[in-house]
Design a protein around this nucleic acid. Sequence first.
DNA 1: GGGCTAGATTGATCAGATGAATAAGCGGCA
DNA 2: TGCCGCTTATTCATCTGATCAATCTAGCCC
Lengths: 252, 252
Amino acid sequence: MTTAAIQNETPAATTSSLSQTDVVLQGIKHMITTGALGPGSRLPIEKDLAVSLGVSRGSLREGVRALCIMGVLETRQGDGTYVTSLDSSLLLAPMGFMVDLQAPEHRHDLHTVRRILESEAAARAALYITDEQLAEAAEILAEVSPLIVAGDNLDHEAIMEADIAFHHVVAQGANNSALSALIDALANRTQRARMWLGLHNHGQVVASHGEHMAILGALKAHHPDRARLLMGHHLLVVEDYVQDQPALEEDQ
Amino acid sequence: MTTAAIQNETPAATTSSLSQTDVVLQGIKHMITTGALGPGSRLPIEKDLAVSLGVSRGSLREGVRALCIMGVLETRQGDGTYVTSLDSSLLLAPMGFMVDLQAPEHRHDLHTVRRILESEAAARAALYITDEQLAEAAEILAEVSPLIVAGDNLDHEAIMEADIAFHHVVAQGANNSALSALIDALANRTQRARMWLGLHNHGQVVASHGEHMAILGALKAHHPDRARLLMGHHLLVVEDYVQDQPALEEDQ
DNA sequence: GGGCTAGATTGATCAGATGAATAAGCGGCA
DNA sequence: TGCCGCTTATTCATCTGATCAATCTAGCCC
């Protein structure tokens, strides 16, 4: 059975048998939600915590490790185990891992969600983005310009990095930590790499850069509607490029 | 250190030391993404897999358990370990756990994201919802009507369950598995319970029910714009109720 | 042929031991 | 006195072996 502590437990399921790992997860979660443990707190040492939760050290470690992976805890060998800052960016980052595992037939749904979120984020960024973030976005795009006039053999890697950075700054500009963390998770490096495999056409790369410039212009002018539409259109177009060239499966 | 396999690893970080658990996570992820393991596949038995990945059974179990918690794997004692269906609903469900751990000061951000997603989902539901789903939503609301005329001592539990069910059906109606799974994760039972603690005023409950009816009407009429605005307004109003009555921290 | 039991398979959990990384305390030196 | 380096204790990381419980399989009995 899939471990029950995480999947939304119905009240009835609470009575069903719990694995030892579930005991650890719920125990630590309870300690955090009740305030017994706050961000940065240090947990009792493995041996003591195992005893207090009534499980062996091995089972405790399985639970602690799972919480580490989810970004809730952080272990430092020779020091101890600590609660992280519990920031949205940390807690939502593991979602990128799961997004990578989505079956190909569900990718369209994910793109749609990403488009919804990034469009709205662009609109909010037009209202809330700081001058520093505007400057950062402008600099990212300025560094791309010389790359795309180079001709045929483009530095796809560098352009893709800039693409990721630009969208990240825009998401940050929306001034909503959960929103930007979610966008980062949905548009992680694996997804973007998959997408850029479909953008081998030089004209498409140039067009994409132009769309980025237009979005930046809308942000500078603080026009939410323009930013929303330009971002939505930009993602729509990129999706279409990939749709038209769907093959190309790679590993690593 | 927070386990590195999940947090988006930069290319440089790939060279840094990997914990044994990371080896397991990346190894199994690789097996899935390359198609060596598909949904429903059975993994090699613990001992063999541990040998093939070059780790001990304890470390293997930590990694496998973590993937179980994330909804990727499923173990059946006495049988074996299997890959799940990898559906969006399974893979995004653990997000609810992390959402619960968000610091109170970030809850406003989460509400905003939820409002963005549910508004858009309502609009899409107006286009794509099936007659069966419409009937189900109508029945859910019909069962609430007698509950809220009861007078003062309402059955908050039943009304909240109906609230969750209604929003769930609407999200399902959008015909986008990732979108509905994300909404379910953001609006899980813990969050809803927290929200309903602020809805002790009878008039607010009645108003909320009326808003649900209006949303259902927009869905029946297949009016996306009306559905989007009504849902957005509904969530905005509910948030305001909770904002005005912010205290009330409970455990359990 | 159908149902039941015994053995094999496999994960769940525990206990113990060893290694590695870090922190803290201590003493020596300028 | 103040600072640096070493030693020691603490703590997590990992491995090994064992026992228990759940499940499946195969063979037996009726």
